[in-house]
Design a protein around this nucleic acid. Sequence first.
DNA 1: GTAAATTTTTACGATTTTTTAACGGCCCGC
DNA 2: GCGGGCCGTTAAAAAATCGTAAAAATTTAC
Lengths: 230, 230
Amino acid sequence: MPDPVVVLIEDEPQIRRFLRVTLTGQGYRLFEATTGADGLVEVGSRQPDVVIVDLGLPDIDGIDVIRRLREWTAVPIIVLSARGQERDKVTALDAGADDYVSKPFGASELVARIRVALRHTAGASHEADDAAFKVGELRMDLLRRQVFVGDREVRLTPIEYKLLTTLVRHAGKVVTHQQLLREVWGPTHTDQAHYVRVYMAHLRHKLEAEPARPRYLLTEPGVGYRLAAD
Amino acid sequence: MPDPVVVLIEDEPQIRRFLRVTLTGQGYRLFEATTGADGLVEVGSRQPDVVIVDLGLPDIDGIDVIRRLREWTAVPIIVLSARGQERDKVTALDAGADDYVSKPFGASELVARIRVALRHTAGASHEADDAAFKVGELRMDLLRRQVFVGDREVRLTPIEYKLLTTLVRHAGKVVTHQQLLREVWGPTHTDQAHYVRVYMAHLRHKLEAEPARPRYLLTEPGVGYRLAAD
DNA sequence: GTAAATTTTTACGATTTTTTAACGGCCCGC
DNA sequence: GCGGGCCGTTAAAAAATCGTAAAAATTTAC
C-alpha cells in the first residue's frame, strides 16, 4: 500500500501540530482543515483513507460533519474529543463514526486505532477485484492466476502469464511490440523484439487449437498483436 | 438482521451479570465464557457477530485469545480491560482487536461500539470464516490447531503451522513467496526466499503421500505456491 | 543445565524458465 | 525471380528457480 492519506479536521493549533509531527513521521500523508466546512471539502478532494475529526469545531458541530460525510462516503472516521461524556460518544458513534478517542490521548494509541481503521478498508476493497476475462473457449481468472481453455487448465510461466495479462488489459485493441516489451520485460528491453515473437509462439502453442491459425492471439502485421474480444 | 449473537469472554461475575442484563435487554443473544479456552470454543461453535473479551483472564492471556481467534476468523473483537495503559491498548489493537474499552465503562457506550462493529461486518461478504478446512485426505481444525491426513494426526511446528494456515486462508489461490515470507516470518525477512523452500519440503514430507508428487501443496514456478481446493 | 526440538544456514543436483540462435516461409518492391 | 524485411517455429545453451539433505545455531522443554 502507498502511504495512507489522512484528513484531520481540528481547530486547536497545538493538537494539529502534535498530530502533524506524529503522523507524517510514521509515513502518513496528512491534510489539515480547521473548520467543518473546510473539512468536508478536503475529504471530497483528497479521498483519504481515514478522517480524524474533532467534535469542538468553531463553525459546524462535529456530529453534523460526520452525518454530512456519511451521506456519500464510507471512509473510516475517528472522533477526537475533549468531552468524555458517554452521551457524546454514543451520539458520535451512532452518527457514523467508527471510533472515539478522548483527549488527552497518546500518539501511539491513536496511530494504533488508525491502523485498525485501515485494516478494515483493506479487506473491504479486496473483494471487488474478482477480475475475470473470457473470450470463446479461453478463460482467465486474474484473482486465482489461472488460465483455462475449455475446462482444461493451462500452466503458464511467469513471462507467458504477464504477456497474456498485458494483452487482456487491452483486449480488443492493438498492443504494439514496444508496449509489450516495456510492460513485460521492462523499459530496458524495448529493442529485443524477437522475445515477443518467441513467447507469442509459446502462448499460441498452449492456448490455440490451431497455433498456425490463431483465434485469440492475433497478429497485426507491422504493428503488434491483439487479443480477440467478444 | 436477526438478533445479533455476542460471545462474552469475561471472568468477573459482576461484569458478566451487568452485560447479560444490558445486552439481552437490547435484543442481543449472549453466550458467555469465563476462561480463554472456553471462549475460543464458544466462538468456534456459536459463530457470533461480535466477540467481547476481557484482558485479565484466569488461564490464557487475553492478547493470546485475540491472536488465536485471528488465526481463523475476522469477527469483530472488542476488548474490555481494567488496564488503561496505552501500551496495552496498542498491543491489543495490533494483535487484531477492533476496539478497546477501558473499565469502568458505560453500558450505552459499549452498546454503541457494538453497533459500530456490526455496521462493519454488515457490508463485508460472508467469506470463508470457518474454523475448519478440508481437501482430499487433508483436514485442518483451525480452532484446535490440529492437522489430519486421513485420520492420522500430524504434528506441526509453529512455523510449519503458520505457513499452512497462510496457504489455507488463500486456498485455491496462488500465494507469492513474498506474501508467505511477510505473513509467516514478518516484513523484515522478505528476501530470504529459501526459508519457504525448506519449510514447504517439511510440510510435504509430513502431509503428502508422495512428497515428490504433491497433491495439495502445489508449486507455481516462478511465482509461489498454491494449496489445492475442491 | 542438559537434552530435545525447532529454526536458520549452507550446499548441490535437478528441474524449469529465459535467452539466444538458426532456419524457413511469406509478402512486396524491384 | 531475387533479396530484404517481418514473422513463426524449433532447438539449444544459459540462467534462474526449486527440492532436498544435512550441519549449525538457537530456542524450548524438562
